[in-house]
C-alpha cells in the first residue's frame, strides 16, 4: 500500500457520493432495465415467445428460485449468507414421500418444520455462538444433504393427489406455484418495509455494534432471519418435488444457493448488508431465468448459458464494488 491509497481513503462522503451517482443508479435499477430489454428482444426475436404456454413455463420454473432468493435477501441483509438452502430443499422434499401417510398437509408441515429446524441451527451458530455465516452454513449444506440422502435414499415418486395438484394445478390459469411465490414475495416485502423486525434487520446489517448499543435484539433478529430462510427453502423444495412428482435427494436443489445469491446480488442488494431489495431480487431471479431460456430458445447449449450467467454475476458484483469503494472512501 502506498500513501496514495491512504489519501484516497479519507474523504468527504457527501462530496464523493455525488460523483458516483451514475454507478449507484445502475446498481439500483440496472436489473429492471436489463429485464425489460431482454423481454423486448425476445418479443421480437423469439418465435412464439408471447404465448401463455411459454410465459407460464418461465414463471413456474422461476417460482422456487424466487422463494429461496427472498430468504437469501434477508440473510444477506444482515451481512450474512446461507449456503444451506439447496440442501434444505432436498431434505424437505425427501421427507414428503416418507410422511405422505399423514396426508398431504401433514407431510408438508413436517417438511416445513425440518426447514425451520435447520434454520434454527444456522441462526444459533451465527447469532449466538458467533460462527461466521459462510462457515456455519457451508457445514450445514454438506451435513443436511447427507441427512436428506439418509432419509430419502433413492428417487421416490409422489402420487398423493393433493401434492400433485399443488405442483401442477392452477387458479384461473395461474399455477399454484406462481401464486404462492407471489404471495410470499408480498409478505416478505411488507415485513421488510413495515415490520419492526424488518427495520431492525436492516439496521443490524448496516452497523451491528451500533444496533447492539441501541438495544436492538440482535441475536433474536439473526436467529429469526435464518429460520425464515430455512422455512422458505423448505417451501421451495416441497413445491419443486410436487411439480416434478418425484423427490431426488441427491439432485434436488443443487446449486440453488448460487442461483439465489445471484438473484439477490444482481438485484442490487450489497453483500455487505444493511439493505434488502425485494423487488430487485425478484427481478434478478426473473432475469437469470430469462437469460437461460433465451439461450435455450436459440439452441445455445446449457454450458454457454452458465458462462453467460457467470459473466453477469461478476458484472453485478463489479458495479456494487465500484459503489462500495466510493462509499468507504
Amino acid at each position: 500500500m502506498s500513501d496514495g491509497t491512504a489519501t484516497a481513503t479519507v474523504a468527504d462522503r457527501s462530496e464523493r457520493s455525488g460523483t458516483r451517482f451514475d454507478i449507484d443508479w445502475v446498481r439500483r435499477n440496472g436489473v429492471f432495465v436489463a429485464l425489460g430489454l431482454l423481454l423486448l428482444a425476445n418479443v421480437f426475436l423469439t418465435e412464439n415467445f408471447v404465448s401463455t404456454g411459454t410465459l407460464r413455463l418461465q414463471l413456474v420454473q422461476v417460482a422456487p428460485v424466487v422463494i429461496v432468493a427472498l430468504g437469501m435477501a434477508l440473510v444477506i441483509g444482515t451481512e450474512g449468507i446461507d449456503l444451506s438452502v439447496g440442501a434444505v430443499m432436498a431434505l424437505a422434499a425427501a421427507l414428503i414421500p416418507l410422511y405422505v401417510g399423514y396426508g398431504s398437509v401433514g407431510a408438508i408441515a413436517i417438511g416445513l418444520v425440518a426447514g425451520v429446524v435447520v434454520g434454527l441451527i444456522a441462526g444459533v451458530l451465527v447469532g449466538v455462538v458467533g460462527v461466521q455465516p459462510i462457515v456455519a452454513t457451508l457445514g450445514l449444506m454438506v451435513a443436511i444433504r447427507g441427512v436428506a440422502n439418509l432419509f430419502g435414499g433413492e428417487i421416490k415418486s409422489i402420487r398423493e393427489p393433493g401434492l400433485v395438484s399443488l405442483g401442477t394445478g392452477d387458479v384461473a390459469g395461474v399455477p399454484y406455484v406462481v401464486v404462492i411465490a407471489a404471495v410470499v414475495s408480498l409478505v416478505v416485502w411488507l415485513v421488510v418495509r413495515r415490520s419492526t423486525y424488518g427495520r431492525q434487520l436492516v439496521a443490524i446489517g448496516g452497523n451491528k455494534l451500533a444496533a447492539r448499543l441501541a438495544g436492538l435484539p440482535v441475536r433474536r433478529v439473526l436467529v429469526t432471519t435464518y429460520v425464515v430462510s430455512g422455512l422458505l427453502a423448505a417451501m421451495a423444495g416441497i413445491l419443486l418435488a410436487a411439480r416434478s412428482q418425484a423427490s431426488d435427494p441427491t439432485k434436488l436443489g443443487q446449486l440453488m444457493e448460487l442461483s439465489a445469491i445471484t438473484a439477490v446480488v444482481i438485484g442490487g442488494t450489497p453483500l455487505s448488508g444493511g439493505q434488502v431489495r425485494i423487488l430487485g431480487t425478484i427481478a434478478g431471479a426473473l432475469l437469470m431465468q430469462l437469460i437461460t431460456a433465451t439461450l435455450i430458445f436459440h439452441d445455445i447449449p446449457d454450458s454457454t448459458a452458465q458462462i453467460v450467467q457467470a459473466v453477469i454475476v461478476i458484472g453485478a458484483v463489479y458495479v456494487q464494488l465500484g459503489r462500495g469503494k466510493a462509499r468507504r472512501s
Binding site: R199, V202, A203, N207, A210, G274, Q275, R327
Partner: peptide
C-alpha cells in the same frame, strides 16, 4: 461512526 450511526439508513430510521 463505529458505534453510533447506521450510515446507509436515513436520518429518520
Amino acid at each position: 461512526k463505529a458505534e453510533g450511526i447506521v450510515p446507509d439508513l436515513s436520518v429518520r430510521d
